[in-house]
Simulated assay, not measured.
Amino acid sequence: MLSFARVRALVVVGLLAMLALIFVIVALVRDTQGDAGATAGCQKGWPKADVTLREPSEVKINVLNGTDQVGLAGKISDDFRNRKFQIEKTGDEAKTDDIAVLRYGPKGVGSAHLLRAYFLNNAEVAYDPERTDATVDVVLGSAFQQLATTTEVNQSLGDLGSPVAPPGTCPVKDE
């Protein structure tokens, strides 16, 4: 049988738990800062940067050869196609000594972020605020050897974290 002191203690603990639950529910319902981080610091007229991390099947890329190796863009575009990317075009580009250069605009921020993982975050990024399409140019450089494996890509994405909007843009999801 419970003593009066124990019953009283259980009642007090129960009431405190109930008050805490009510307080949490009210705080969540009345929260006015749900999207505060999404547009914090955005200036009027800044382009909207799509920071949605895309699936490969949603990413359109141009694969360009920035090396002296003949046919590299075609070979690597086949590798990207096997990984479900949409290849818009292949071709040659000015030579570069980098592993790769990723050129993209505000609509391609999330796509470029995904592609960085395929180069283990060793690709140079070239953001162009004037670019209006979501396609990412992948310029393969003379230091390029191969694309990362699926496991390496997943580890690299974990290291990279979430896509971040470039300076001078407003981050949005699923534009």
Rank of each mutant, 00 (worst) to 15 (best):
I99D: 02
V70D: 01
E175C: 05
N62Q: 12
G41N: 11
E130I: 00
M18D: 07
Q33R: 14
V24D: 11
D97F: 02
A123M: 04
K107E: 12
E130H: 04
T151W: 13
S142E: 09
T96R: 05
A117Y: 05
V101K: 05
N154L: 09
R8C: 06
R30I: 07
Y127P: 12
G108C: 10
D92F: 02
C170D: 09
P47H: 11
M18P: 00
K107Y: 04
S57V: 14
Y118M: 09
G45K: 05
D98V: 06
T169I: 09
Q155T: 10
V12A: 06
R81I: 05
Q155P: 01
R54C: 11
D128C: 04
L114D: 11
A36W: 10
D35G: 13
S111Q: 08
K48S: 11
F144W: 07
T150H: 08
R83T: 07
S156H: 00
S57E: 15
D92L: 06
Q155A: 05
P47E: 12
L157R: 06
S57T: 13
D35E: 12
V29N: 11
L147H: 01
D128E: 13
K75D: 08
V7E: 03
L147R: 04
L114P: 06
S162D: 14
K173S: 14
A148T: 03
C42M: 08
D137Y: 04
T32M: 08
T151G: 13
T32L: 12
M18Y: 07
G161V: 01
A112D: 06
D98E: 15
T52W: 12
V138S: 05
V29W: 10
K44Q: 12
A40V: 06
